[in-house]
């Protein structure tokens, strides 16, 4: 199954498989809109400990070039990363500000 972000738009019966079968990844479902608080990492204080990455229930923190990168398309804003950060370098900031 491709990590395709496109939604599938079936038009009619004939396009369906015989039984309910997944054809795309949920990566087609950006859950970022659920968020009311947004995690913001202060890179100056980050020690690249990977704790935020490891505990993300949504796989919404990527580990890129030895650094955490929050994927705001998907981050639901639970705040586990900020809570668990040993350096307290992730701030939860109100969305829409």
């Amino acid at each position: 199954m491709a990590k395709d972000r496109k939604k599938i738009e079936f038009q009619k019966l004939g396009e369906l498989p015989p039984m309910v079968q997944s054809l795309r990844s949920m990566a087609a479902n950006p859950t970022g809109s659920w968020r009311t608080l947004k995690p913001v990492i202060d890179p100056a204080n980050c020690i690249q400990c990977t704790i935020c990455w490891k505990f993300c229930p949504d796989a919404a923190i990527d580990w890129v070039d030895d650094n955490p990168a929050i994927n705001l398309d998907f981050c639901k804003g639970c705040g586990i990363c900020a809570e668990e950060c040993p350096k307290k370098c992730i701030a939860m900031v109100k969305e829409g500000k």
Binding site: M26, A27, N29, P30, T31, P57, N71, G77, C78, G79
Partner: peptide, 10 residues
């Protein structure tokens, strides 16, 4: 993948 339907902090 991300984008699943778990609640926040699941």
């Amino acid at each position: 993948s991300p984008g699943h339907l778990a609640c926040q902090g699941c």
